[in-house]
């Protein structure tokens, strides 16, 4: 059965109905969510995460079909990287990954399980700045390290068919490497972002205003043609950033 996520419109903060009509998202598609801060991007992701039956402040309805019932009921159908930059649980990275895998029901996916924690930590360390240790308490991770761990964990442990990513560019991690790791053909991916390059690389963007979906814009060929030029500028900025933060001068 094909996986489809159906999003039925609700209302914006003024109670006006969203005019976007019913949206259907399919695996392999990357949709970005754009709009000024406070315009409802995070709210939209929260509605999708909960597969809201219509009891959220927007009244939207989100239905995911083609996914086994046990995955839906376990709460692991929709993975989400929120803007949270901190862990609160009093566990080490290793304990946390192990418990999360058990909660997911894939604790025996890797028989040793210790390797899974190492794998997740290694992947996270490839995305973050200075590496953390697998036996380090979660609460001592920096904001960027915590985000990198959430990214690695959501793919390697949670492995959800739908993935929501909230402003990955603010995380202080390599956002392009993170997105390359997160986006897979078999997933439906939504990314809330202020980054024009991420928007233009996606298949379409939902533009938010006053809490509602105001426009649905498919990325045009003309826009796609701009990606190469913008990527060059972006790479230049990245090199500069790295140079300065390692103590270099211009």
């Amino acid at each position: 059965m094909n996986v489809v996520m159906r999003l039925e419109p609700g209302t914006d903060k003024q109670g006006r109905p969203e005019s976007c009509g019913v949206l259907e998202l399919r695996p392999g598609e990357v949709t970005t969510v754009a709009g000024p801060t406070g315009s409802g991007k995070t709210r939209l992701l929260a509605d999708i995460e909960r597969l809201t039956p219509g009891d959220s402040p927007t009244g939207r309805k989100v239905v995911l079909s083609g996914v086994p019932d046990e995955v839906l009921q376990s709460g692991f159908a929709v993975g989400r990287i929120s803007q949270a930059m901190q862990f609160f649980l009093d566990l080490t990275v290793r304990e946390f990954v192990k418990m999360h895998a058990q909660a997911r029901g894939n604790g025996d996916k890797d028989p040793t399980n210790e390797d899974l924690a190492e794998m997740v930590a290694n992947q996270a360390n490839r995305l973050a700045g200075e590496p953390f240790q697998v036996d380090q308490p979660l609460a001592t991770l920096s904001g960027g390290q915590a985000r990198a761990l959430m990214v690695a964990d959501v793919v390697l442990v949670a492995d959800a068919p739908v993935l929501l990513i909230d402003e990955i560019e603010n995380a202080g991690i390599d956002r392009h490497a993170a997105l390359e790791f997160l986006i897979e053909e078999r997933r439906i991916v939504l990314i809330a972002t202020h980054d024009p390059l991420i928007m233009l690389k996606s298949d379409r963007r939902l533009v938010m205003a006053e809490g509602g979906i105001r426009h649905v814009i498919d990325t045009s060929d003309g826009e796609r043609a701009e990606v190469e030029r913008l990527t060059r500028i972006d790479r230049e900025m990245a090199v500069l950033r790295d140079q300065l933060r390692r103590g270099g001068t211009l």
């Binding site: 995460e49 709460g75 989400r80 990287i81 862990f87 649980l89 999360h100 442990v157």
Partner: peptide, 9 residues
């Protein structure tokens, strides 16, 4: 207030 992963645990 907490991440999705922590909530699931």
């Amino acid at each position: 207030m907490i991440s999705q992963a922590e909530r699931q645990v």
